[in-house]
């Protein structure tokens, strides 16, 4: 499975009825399965980005970096960006209350 990140392009989109020029960043996974991206927007301006699916950590890392680049290109100025961490024991992150969560 190969992940290709295309060069960002400026395109005009319709965003809830508003015409906007945005940076489009396309990700393509050759022969890949669906990848789920979850972004938790927390109070006070912080976010946690989860990549899930049948992908390797390196692919998840590339997807996360592409997402961060897209957010920054749209004018969101992050004061800090943590490293992309492989999900394992000891990585602190949000858990949905009452959601499915197997101990790890």
């Amino acid at each position: 499975m190969e992940l290709t990140v295309f060069t960002p392009q400026q395109v005009t989109v319709d965003n809830d009825g508003f015409s906007q020029v945005v940076t489009m960043l396309m990700l393509h996974m050759e022969g890949g399965n669906a990848v789920e991206l979850k972004v938790y927007v927390m109070p006070g301006g912080s976010v946690q980005i989860f990549v899930d699916g049948q992908v390797s950590f390196e692919q998840a890392q590339a997807i996360t970096q592409a997402v961060m680049a897209q957010l920054q290109a749209s004018g969101i100025a992050f004061r800090e960006i943590g490293t992309v961490e492989q999900h394992r024991d000891g990585v602190s992150h949000v858990h949905i209350t009452g959601g499915v969560h197997v101990r790890h």
């Binding site: 912080s46 980005i49 990549v51 998840a60």
Partner: peptide, 8 residues
């Protein structure tokens, strides 16, 4: 697979 944190 991966988790990343950022803040504005």
């Amino acid at each position: 697979v991966s988790i990343t944190k950022a803040a504005v």
